[in-house]
Design a protein around this nucleic acid. Structure first.
Lengths: 206, 206
DNA sequence: TTTAATTAATCAAACGTATGATTAATTATT
DNA sequence: AATAATTAATCATACGTTTGATTAATTAAA
């Protein structure tokens, strides 16, 4: 019954997001999943390999949906306008996964995991950087600080996805839940906001 | 010899920043500081209380320097232009401390620590929100999404401070070291960038 | 088509190690 | 001499991992 493997991955994603990788014991995980402790080693070999399997699973399932970035136009403004909602959808489809990645990426331990995480995150980052560079080269964008513009862009989503429930409550007022209508709400606000900020920042004034 | 207490705080800050709170054992800490394990309990009572002492120490030393935000003008544009460099200086004076806070703030464990962290972070956040609200009310700023504008602003610094060395290397090219000239470099870039982004976003177009 | 052999899945228990914390004894300082 | 600071030793608990046994399911041999 191979869907118990999947159940372990899902529970692990939840617990890692809430309590971190170090903060989640495989005993907690097994108990939450209603399974025996040994199943983790049986399916994955070790706790760390379970993490790697999680990254593998989530990022491959994401790649399926996303396909190649739309290259149908070379206009950086349009490419940006197309990329933003696509990225937002990617994030909001797996908020817990990205919360885990961003947090573990801020650590300086377990170098093998670090490499995997960095690879996964940087794949996205480079799509965005390409657009910025092209736009600046073509004179369609102002000569902004490209690195920090990327930091601002990805920082926005990191901040939003990473905040704990109580931080959300106290910082944003609005709850950040799992339910679909909440997500739709945030999706639209986020897309609008990111596009506004980026366009105001990048486009030369009339 | 009370500066051994301080030495413990400093080493703890370093190790927590690198490996996280959970990922740092009090044995590692004692060994790094060249002290006996029991000194942690002697000075602080427990590992968790040591963390609280660290927050207490760093945030009080920060409050000294910052004083009340400059209220000499009511012009939101000027207040913003004054707040940004002041915040950037605050962050860059204690990059490791904020790296710790942001990471632990993304967890949903140890509620008591969570409260302390949220309190510490939100104090700054509210300075900024006040300016945004006033600016929008007075019509000096566009009617932006205030919550997400704050997310973008704080997300920028979170992202920059939180990235591990190898993430910095691979994302920004430039190293993010401790040395002073590096810090001066980033300080100026950050201030310029944040002001540019925020002003482009907030100020109504001619 | 029954029976034997093999593989996959699951479990309870135990392993050795690491953890945070405490104790009691010792040394240094005042 | 009394207090403060430091140490080594110890404690109970929690951790990730491994083991050996058991059951269920699948395949091969008769």
């Amino acid at each position: 019954m191979q869907n118990r493997r999947r159940a372990l991955l899902d529970k692990a994603e939840f617990l890692f997001a809430e309590h971190g990788f170090e903060g989640t014991s495989i005993r907690d995980l097994a108990k939450e999943a209603g399974m025996n402790l040994a199943m983790i080693s049986y399916y994955f070999g070790s706790k760390e390999k379970l993490f790697e399997a999680l990254v593998e699973d989530r990022s491959s399932s994401l790649l399926e949906k996303v396909k190649a970035p739309n290259e149908s136009t070379s206009d950086p403004v349009q490419r940006l306008a197309a990329l933003v909602p696509s990225l937002v959808d990617r994030w909001l489809a797996n908020p817990r996964f990205y919360r885990i990645l961003y947090r573990e990426a801020s650590l300086n331990s377990r170098p093998e995991l670090q490499r995997i995480i960095a690879d996964t995150l940087l794949r996205q980052v480079n799509e965005f950087r390409k657009i910025l560079q092209d736009g600046v080269e073509q004179g369609r964008f102002r000569e902004v600080d490209i690195d920090l513009t990327m930091v601002t862009f990805y920082g926005t989503i990191t901040q939003l996805l990473s905040a704990s429930p109580q931080m959300h409550q106290r910082m944003l007022g609005r709850r950040w839940g799992d339910d679909v209508s909440e997500m739709a709400h945030w999706r639209n606000r986020l897309v609008d906001h990111l596009l506004q900020v980026m366009q105001a920042h990048l486009l030369t004034r009339a």
